[in-house]
Amino acid sequence: MPGARKHVTLIPNEWSVGKLVTMTTTHAAEAPPPDAPDGLQEHFDATIARDQRIEPRDWMPEGYRKTLIRQIAQHAHSEIIGMQPEGEWITRAPSLRRKAILFAKVQDEAGHGLYLYSAAETLGADRDDLTRRLIEGRQKYSSIFNYPTLSFADVGVIGWFVDGAAICNQVPLCRSSYGPYARAMVRICKEESFHQRQGYELLMTMMRGTDAQREMVQDAVDRWWWPSLMMFGPPDDASPNSARSMAWKIKRHSNDELRRRFVDMTVPQAEKLGVTLPDPQLRWNEESGHHDFGTPDWDELMRVIKGDGPCNDRRMERRRTAHEEGAWVREAATAHAAKQAARAEKGAAA
């Protein structure tokens, strides 16, 4: 669709890639089990060193498996919780075209959550168990989804910033050392490649509209900029355990590297759009070849991660309610399947 692609050529690297998990630090990975049989640890290490994929039935250190399950599960939870802030606007979208786009996008997020849970299940995790961990607050999701969406411009800014941040984080994950995760990420990156440009295109349209629309866009930019920078997680010097994930090639770049890449990518897009990013320290640094920018409020990030963000309770409550209120439906389907199987068996015996 040439019409829809036009903007993209103007804006490098704006391929949307969904939601990322906050780069929570991984707990120190356990040492290989002392009884790791001869050669298997070496074989694993050599596979990683050759930049080849680890596949589900391969031997892997327990720490690698646990780290991956936690990371993939958090990523999946983020996709599912991430449906909420935008999903609230599907019924209110101000044109049928925007309604369809948003509906399809939020649906994609459900699909991406499912692909990721599927990848986690190849490691022996169980989706029901992961869901329970989420709704009991034992596993996290990206902090960004604990902020409210206050106007329709937020839908555009989420596409632009949040999916843009996800690009920086997730494109490298297409090369993650764990095969099913890497493949899921390729699919997600491809499917979501519309989202960010849809968001940006919405903002461009709004900036060409009325004064009220332009104010909505700037207001949304002001509110989402810093939380978006926090999506990359704490600064590297406060994220000691991510080194292990990098050694395992589960993670390919540090939090600060990815954050800087995001800023470099976004600044020219903001100029083109005609909005101001709310950071007085933001400027091009000729020497480093990157932008200098201010420091996010890390205390705020910690508060939001710990459950004290503006919408944490609401997001969790919605997910818990949906799961609990759906129980009778899931149980009925299971019961029907069992009855059908029994009937078939009886029919065969008769």
Partner: peptide, 17 residues
């Protein structure tokens, strides 16, 4: 059963996928 999701439609030229 361990599974091997080889998500289709992966371009041949993506390294190591």
């Amino acid at each position: 059963v361990y599974r091997h999701p080889t998500f289709y439609d992966i371009p041949d030229d993506v390294p190591h996928i």
